[in-house]
Design a protein around this nucleic acid. Structure first.
Length: 218
DNA sequence: AACCAGTCCAACCGCAATTAC
DNA sequence: GGTAATTGCGGTTGGACTGGT
């Protein structure tokens, strides 16, 4: 025989937490700490299972949680870590004190994934998914970089380059860095002086630019 | 004002690893 | 050592919210 079940699911409350439940859980943990999640709801007077209490505490009630939207620097860090660790959200969250794995996972799925796709980067592999070939985007980017004219045939990502970045011999942990290094402005716009020298090779991207592009053209 | 579609995120579910008996 | 409980993680979902028509 093993241990007793963590909770009797019959009669337990589910769904959104009320303020009263939050207060009960918060007060109990702050006063008693956490020895065993199975006992927490019983001792705190909650009709929830321990698993639900744990999730609520970790994702919402912990006093050390950082509130508010993730910063651009945090987004860039998430992308970098994701290229190295994959969907190991708890590991990624470990690099962000006050942020939860759930928060980072949600942010990835709702925002960062879209931005990467918009940039022509596969969020799963961090490799290019298709050549960028949108006249409107070209024009907009052209205006952004001092209204310099974009040459006709400049947005191609050559087969050679694709092969070089998609080769299976490439260590996954280096994918993002290699991709960034291979995607200089000169590649897209040969001969055009780069007004944002770090805009794609640096971990800090100019998301405002892409937000604007997205708003205007998608 | 009503409806619809898209977005966001809290919470749930299922599974695997770990731990206790 | 085997079994079952517990914990932690990642994927998914449902509902609230928002903006457009």
């Amino acid at each position: 025989m093993g241990r007793q079940p963590c909770c009797d699911k019959i009669g337990l409350k589910r769904g959104p937490w009320t303020i009263e439940e939050d207060h009960k859980l918060m007060n109990f943990i702050l006063n008693n700490g956490i020895q065993c999640w199975r006992l927490v709801p019983k001792l705190a007077g909650l009709m929830r299972c321990g698993k639900s209490c744990r999730l609520r505490w970790i994702n919402y009630l912990r006093p050390d949680l950082k509130r508010g939207a993730l910063t651009e620097a945090e987004e860039d860090m998430i992308i970098k870590l994701h290229s190295q660790l994959g969907n190991r959200w708890s590991k990624i969250a470990g690099h962000f004190p006050g942020r939860t794995d759930n928060e980072i996972k949600n942010h990835w799925n709702t925002r960062i994934k879209k931005k990467l796709k918009f940039l022509g980067i596969d969020p799963l592999t961090h490799k290019p998914i298709e050549e960028i070939n949108n006249d409107d985007i070209k024009q907009q980017v052209s205006e952004e970089i001092n209204e310099k004219v974009v040459p006709e045939k400049t947005l191609e990502y050559t087969q050679e380059q694709q092969n070089s970045t998609s080769s299976s011999s490439i260590n996954e942990s280096n994918n993002l860095e290699m991709f960034q290094n291979s995607h200089t402005l000169d590649m897209y716009y040969p001969g055009v002086e780069d007004p944002f020298p770090n805009w794609i090779t640096s971990p800090i991207h100019n998301w405002d630019l892409f937000d604007n592009l997205q708003d205007n053209f998608l």
